[in-house]
Design a protein around this nucleic acid. Structure first.
Length: 427
RNA sequence: GUGGAUGUAGCUCAGUUGGUUAGAGCACUAGAUUGUGGAUCUAGGGGUCGGGGGUUCGAUUCCCCUCAUCCACCCCA
C-alpha cells in the first residue's frame, strides 16, 4: 500500500532539516541576545482552551479529537493560550517581568497555499508584567534584530505599527458604539487587502450612517501619527493613546530601529484580544503575507482565570520567512552544510578494517565527529565519501600502520598530509 | 466551502497530429593500468506516463470520473 504524506505537511529530509535548523537556530540566538529564556508546552491541550477567546469558527480550523477518557482535545494552533495557562499556574512564584520565547510546532486545518501550511513552526516571544510601551518596542526590535541578522535590510521589510487602543478611542470619537468595535476590527483589518468599494460595502452592513463611514475612510487613510489631530478631534482617552503610541516610536528610535518602522492605521489584526500596540512585519514588495505579527494583550491572562497581568508579544512563522529569505538570496540550498565531520577514516587494506573501526571509535570517544566507510574500496572512492560528508580531515589506515604504527592525516581543505604515531594520536 | 492550473524516473522537465523496446539533465551505483576528494568521460539501475472507466485494432496522447498537488478566494490566532 502506497502511503501519502498528509496534506499541508512537510517531510524534512536532511537538506530541508538543515534549512529548518538554520531558521530555528537564528530565532533562538536572537531571543537569547535579547534576554529571553525558552519554554515549551504540550502539543495538545483541551479544545476548550482555544474556544475561550475565539468563536466556534476557529474550532473548524483546529485538529481536534477525543481521547479514550472522552476528553475533547486539540493540537495547538498557537502557543499563547498555553503560555497564559502556564504563567497563571505559577504566577506567584515567577519573578517579574517574564521574558520567554518558544519555537512551537503548530497545526491549523486551513487550506494550504503559498506561505501557509497545516503544520509549521512559529517563533514566539512574550514579555509579561511590563505595562510600559518599552516592552512593546522591545518585542518589535527583537523581531527586527532577527531579520537584520539574516541579512535583510530596512529596504526589504517594514514593521507596520498601530494601536488598538488609539483606534478604539478614535472610532468612539466619530460615534461608534463600544460594542460595535469588536465586529468592526476584522473589517478594518481588510482595508488594504480589498478594493475600496468592497470595503465600504462591508462597512455599510455594520454602520447605517454614511457620514460615519466617510469618517472611517478618512481615519483609515492617515499615514502619520502627527496628522491624527488634524483629522479627528481627540478626547482625553484618544490623546493618551496617541501619546503612548508616540512613545513606542520614541523607544524604537532609541533602539536604532526607526528606519524599519512606520505608523500604519490599517494594521488592526483580526484577533479580538489585542488591547494596545499592534504590529506586523511585511516584505516591502507586499507580495507575501505578513512575516510576523503581534501586539499587546493585557486581558488574556485574566481571561484564562488568572490575575490581571499585562503582556505583549509576537509570533513569526517559518513558511513565509523561508520564501522571503530565498527570494532575497539569503538562503540557498547549497549554502547550508547537511553534515560536518572532524574526521573520516579511510581504510585501504582489508586486513586493517577492524583496526579502522577501532580507530574511529576512539576518535568518537574523544568527542570528535567521525565516520568510516563500510567497505574497504578504492581510496579515491573513500576520499570522495569523506568530501561529501564535509570531513575536515581524512585519516588513512593502510601500509603505514602495518609497517610503523603510523596514520596518515590529510587536511581536506589544504590537501596537506602528515604522518602521526597512531597510539599517541589516539591517547 | 468556491474558482483556476498541473500530475511522465528520486528531483526539474521534454515528448506523442493516437502507432514498435517513453527520453534528457541533475541525483544514485559501478568503472576509466587496483594509495588520494571537489572535475571530466563511459556504463548501469530506476517509470503499471497519478488512479479507475470509456472510445479505438491500438491510449502516456482523445473523453468522463476520481485522487493528489500548486495558485487565488474564504479564513488567517
Amino acid at each position: 500500500m502506497k502511503m501519502q504524506p498528509v496534506k499541508g505537511t512537510r517531510d524534512f529530509y536532511p537538506p530541508q532539516m538543515a534549512v529548518r535548523n538554520f531558521i530555528v537556530d537564528g530565532w533562538k540566538a536572537s531571543s537569547i541576545r535579547n534576554g529571553f529564556v525558552e519554554y515549551d508546552g504540550p502539543i495538545f491541550e483541551y479544545l476548550q482552551m482555544y474556544q475561550v477567546k475565539s468563536g466556534d469558527e476557529i474550532v473548524e480550523q483546529l485538529f481536534n479529537f477525543t481521547d479514550r477518557g472522552n476528553r475533547h482535545l486539540a493540537i495547538r494552533p498557537e502557543i499563547t493560550p498555553t503560555l497564559a495557562r502556564m504563567i497563571n499556574k505559577q504566577i506567584n512564584a515567577l519573578p517579574m517581568p517574564i521574558k520567554w520565547f518558544s519555537v512551537p510546532r503548530l497545526c491549523r486545518a486551513e487550506r494550504p497555499q503559498k506561505g501557509r501550511l497545516r503544520e509549521f513552526f512559529q517563533w514566539n516571544i512574550d514579555i509579561i508584567g511590563i505595562e510600559d510601551v518599552l516592552a512593546d518596542a522591545e518585542v518589535i526590535c527583537c523581531s527586527l534584530d532577527y531579520l537584520r541578522n539574516t541579512g535583510l535590510t530596512s529596504k526589504d521589510v517594514v514593521a507596520k505599527i498601530s494601536s488598538r487602543r488609539l483606534l478604539a478611542a478614535l472610532l468612539k470619537n466619530i460615534g461608534i458604539a463600544e460594542e460595535k468595535l469588536e465586529s468592526l476590527y476584522p473589517i478594518l483589518d481588510k482595508k488594504t487587502k480589498i478594493p475600496v468599494e468592497a470595503f465600504v460595502e462591508m462597512l455599510e452592513k455594520e454602520i447605517d450612517s454614511p457620514e460615519t463611514i466617510q469618517a472611517i475612510l478618512k481615519l483609515m487613510d492617515i499615514h502619520s501619527v502627527n496628522d491624527i489631530p488634524d483629522i479627528v478631534k481627540l478626547d482625553e482617552k484618544a490623546q493618551e493613546s496617541l501619546d503612548e503610541l508616540k512613545r513606542v516610536f520614541a523607544y524604537l528610535e532609541k533602539m536604532g530601529a526607526e528606519d524599519w518602522c512606520r505608523f500604519d492605521m490599517s494594521i488592526v489584526r483580526g484577533l479580538a484580544y489585542y488591547t494596545g500596540m499592534v504590529f506586523e512585519i511585511h516584505d516591502k514588495s507586499g507580495d507575501l503575507r505578513a512575516i510576523c505579527g503581534g501586539g499587546r494583550y493585557d486581558n488574556l491572562l485574566s481571561d484564562f482565570g488568572g490575575p490581571k497581568v499585562t503582556a505583549t508579544g509576537m509570533g513569526m512563522g517559518d513558511a513565509v520567512l523561508e520564501i522571503l529569505l530565498r527570494e532575497k538570496g539569503l538562503l540557498t540550498d547549497d549554502s547550508l552544510d547537511i553534515q560536518k565531520l572532524d574526521y573520516f577514516v579511510a581504510c585501504v587494506d582489508g586486513d586493517l578494517f577492524d583496526e579502522a573501526v577501532e580507530i574511529t571509535t576512539k576518535i568518537r570517544q574523544k568527542g570528535y565527529a567521525a565516520n568510516f566507510s563500510y567497505k574497504t574500496n578504492a581510496l579515491k572512492k573513500q576520499m570522495k565519501i569523506a568530501d561529501s560528508m564535509n570531513a575536515a580531515k581524512c585519516i588513512i589506515v593502510g601500509g603505514e600502520l602495518k609497517e610503523s604504527g603510523q596514520l596518515v592525516i590529510k587536511d581536506m581543505a589544504t590537501g596537506e598530509q602528515i604522518l602521526v604515531d597512531a597510539t599517541t594520536f589516539l591517547e
